[in-house]
Amino acid sequence: MAVSGAARVVVWVVAVVAGVVSAGLIVALVVNPDMADRTASVTGAIVGLAALLIAVITLVRNRGTSSGGRRVRAGRGGVAAGGNITGNAIGDRSKVIGPPTPAGPAPTGGQDADVRAARDGLAAGGNVTDNALGDDSERR
């Protein structure tokens, strides 16, 4: 996942702070092991609370929002399309011969429905027209 802008700065600040705290705990361990034990315990508690706070903020911020589109998934060997599948040759030795049929409009109902093709299956969120599907298939 790429991180850019302000998020990149936050990642670097967190990395530097974590490095400084780790180095400080190592120095404290060498100088005074009893103090290092208590310091590490308090530091761990603070870091745990910060992680909990970040998790809660992330969950609340992302609740109820969606990507606005459908998810398109295909199993091994499957073909899935979020819209129309028109004029394709899919599979071994498949051919589409002849003038293409113009694609029709995608169905209007269920625009946000997910599209999923199981293993070796075919699924489309729209119309399937003018295709040659499967082994040795041909449309003339």
Rank of each mutant, 00 (worst) to 15 (best):
R93I: 09
A28G: 04
L49N: 12
P33E: 00
G109P: 09
D34H: 09
R139E: 04
G78S: 09
Q111N: 10
R119K: 14
G98M: 02
I57S: 11
R119Y: 09
G134H: 01
A124E: 02
M35S: 12
N32T: 13
N32R: 13
G91W: 00
R38W: 10
A117R: 03
G121I: 03
S66N: 14
A2F: 08
T39S: 13
R73W: 13
V27H: 01
A106W: 08
S66G: 15
D112C: 07
A117V: 01
V60W: 05
V17Q: 02
G5I: 08
T101S: 07
R38D: 05
V96R: 00
N88H: 09
V60M: 05
G98N: 04
V79I: 13
G69N: 08
L122H: 03
G69I: 07
P102R: 10
G110C: 05
M35D: 09
T65D: 15
A113V: 05
G126L: 06
L122M: 05
V56H: 08
S66H: 12
G121S: 14
G126H: 05
T65H: 14
R140P: 11
V60Y: 04
G48M: 09
G98F: 00
Q111P: 05
G44M: 07
I97H: 03
L53T: 13
V9A: 08
V9M: 08
G82K: 03
G110S: 01
G19E: 05
G126S: 07
G24N: 06
V96S: 00
D120I: 07
M1V: 07
T58W: 12
A113K: 10
P99N: 10
R76D: 14
G48V: 04
G68D: 03
A113H: 11
G64R: 07
P105E: 15
S137D: 03
T86Q: 05
P107G: 09
G83Q: 12
R70H: 06
N84A: 04
P100D: 07
G19Q: 03
M35G: 06
S67W: 04
